[in-house]
Design a binder for these strands. Structure first.
Lengths: 106, 106
DNA sequence: TTGATATGTGACTCATTAGTCACGTAACCT
DNA sequence: AGGTTACGTGACTAATGAGTCACATATCAA
């Protein structure tokens, strides 16, 4: 799970995920072409991090490699980590609402 | 939102959030004592990052500073980013189920 | 006021990361 | 075979991040 958080920290890597969300199964060069501000090697390094976190699954096809989005780790983070704080969010909203409807201070 | 992802990337910072989840409104020294592998200054740097991401809200009280957990940014990440991939997760499960119930290949 | 406590700042070191490049390998095509 | 396309590796540089320390400031308590 550490790898997932780490992978999601970089905006470029989130862009890669977005690109695969729009069109799944793109090749490395296809993806690299979308990032004009970076060389193919930079993109490949980001892909390695995403694969490490299992967020992207590589499928070799002859000389090309297709990258497929794997939403499972994201879902796990949502369930095992984020949902824990969701309850606090709800109670925070309730507290805010009570604060608004019954203000005690200026 | 970038700041939130960045803040969540570090395991120590997630531990800080966990500590505040267990007991909200702890002071800086209180939190620092929980991290024996690190000095107070290290913890303070992490707190700065968490405050920057608005994940932790500081409240000055005389010479002490109390840190309060703010689950709102986490919730926003869940809604605006993660939920987008949740649909893919569902369809992936459906595909997996279909693959299991009607296997075509060995 | 004096001493103790709680937090803050700036400069510094060390490790990690992002990104590039030269080069290498493997597959496709004719 | 020979050229071309697609991807991979290792070494390198520059930037960023983690962590520490000396020191400074503010507050409390007697």
């Amino acid at each position: 799970m550490d790898a997932v958080f780490r992978a999601l920290a970089d905006p470029t890597r989130r862009e890669v995920l977005d690109a695969l969300f729009v069109e799944d199964g793109q090749t490395v060069t296809q993806l690299a072409e979308r990032f004009s501000e970076m060389t193919r090697f930079g993109v490949m390094k980001h892909l390695a991090v995403l694969e490490e976190a299992d967020l992207v699954i590589p499928v070799r096809q002859g000389r090309t490699k297709r990258l497929y989005l794997n939403p499972v780790p994201i879902e796990q983070v949502a369930n095992r980590w984020i949902s824990k704080y969701a309850a606090r969010f709800t109670s925070a909203l309730v507290a805010l609402d009570q604060h608004i409807t019954t203000p005690e201070e200026a």
